[in-house]
Write a protein that binds this DNA or RNA. Structure first.
Lengths: 221, 221
DNA sequence: CTCCATCGCAGCGTATACATAAGTGGGGAG
DNA sequence: CTCCCCACTTATGTATACGCTGCGATGGAG
């Protein structure tokens, strides 16, 4: 694999996992030394991270890991609302029912999975990821999907900050189920509204979770 | 200005203006020689163009100017629908009425401007750009605005392909007027629906214009 | 003691050198 | 004559060298 690709994935992973905390400086020389490659591929990686919105130019010459404030999380969800609703609408119109029927069956087992410990949890997340992928495929709109993927990247950071409890995951599964049912039924309006509801609940719980964990807004896990 | 910035703007301009036609190869060495800079800044410029979606990796080592088919234009408008509707909704909620009242006055003069030749047309487009900027500002959501800007970039290419006639521009102005009125009134729902209508009409005319100009889909201006 | 200026240094932007791989063209064999 | 293989060319990926700019530290002057 290309060094620039490795550098990009490595840095992205560290940002998403919180190893590189919001506000951390991303200096070319430092990262090049740390990652064991020259500045050139690091440069490309940092440019991609900035394009992704995971890094922000604090001043002309200093790049930092983007902040992840309640305000920016809210903004992220306003963006996702727009994108996911549209994607759900289009997917409901263009979907292959068979693919979503299969997903429906897998999602129906979510409550059981959530009682099955770590492995079950992992399987649950796999199902949710599969749902995203199927919606992307059914949406049949490369530009929309690209925007969606970018937004979901940021959501991965939020998810890590706000570990949802099993209760929330169970509720989320049933919200997902409704979206899938709407798509299978070809009900674009319901699919969009169900997506809105899901994102609304997801944001509410994320903000509450972060609020309860960092009441002063500064404590670090 | 940095060489990479100049290279990026130069190449972007040429793509938007159609000087670099869809499918044209973007080779580092060639562009470096042509633009009179070394490969390094060209490399960065090309990476940014790819992130913008204006260039696409045809294979692992060949980058091309993105295609602009009716299908991709339709996809672009599906994305803009999602983003512009959300932006209009948020802007209607968060706007400063004074700023949009001013825009309202300027837009009201659009019909007169469209009878005032080239200079008037230029002024008209300035007003439309100002509207976009005011909506962006009122939206108060950096992520949404970033996605919107990216989408509007592609729209600039479409606009060039499909020169709208004065009739269409007059209609577009009144559509814009309704959006502004809705935002001033704080009517988020109307602002969103008016945006949807505007984009729908805009897409319809763009496709018709392209269709009538390139019935075989291959003729080049 | 404080403030300003100047020197130094660290990091970035650009150019270039080098390594590698993919595409191409030519030549040979069937 | 056609097809396949090999070598060469060329472009990309990476490393490094160089110049410049901006920030900080230090010293001198008020």
């Amino acid at each position: 694999m290309r060094a620039s690709e490795r550098a990009y994935r490595e840095l992205r992973e560290e940002i998403l996992d919180g190893v590189l905390a919001p506000g951390a400086a991303l200096a070319e020389v430092e990262q090049a030394n740390r990652l064991g490659v020259s500045r050139t591929p690091v440069r490309e990686a940092l440019a991609r991270l900035e394009a992704d919105g995971l890094a922000t130019a604090a001043s002309a010459r200093v790049l930092q890991v983007s902040e992840l404030s309640p305000a920016s999380i809210t903004a992220l969800y306003e963006l996702r609302e727009a994108l996911e609703e549209q994607a759900a609408r289009l997917a409901a119109t263009r979907r292959d029912p068979a693919r979503f029927t299969e997903l429906h069956d897998r999602l129906a087992e979510a409550p059981a999975l959530l009682d099955a410990g770590e492995a079950g949890l992992r399987t649950y997340y796999d199902v949710v990821d599969a749902l995203d992928e199927e919606i992307d495929a059914a949406t049949a709109n490369p530009m929309l999907v690209a925007a969606l993927r970018s937004a979901r990247l940021h959501s991965a950071r939020v998810r890590r900050l706000a570990r949802h409890n099993p209760e929330r995951l169970r509720a989320a599964a049933s919200e997902h189920l409704l979206i899938v049912e709407a798509i299978i039924a070809g009900d674009a309006s319901l699919a969009a509204h169900a997506s809105h509801v899901h994102l609304h609940m997801s944001l509410r719980h994320a903000l509450a979770s972060i609020e309860s964990r960092q009441p002063d807004g500064h404590r670090v896990a």
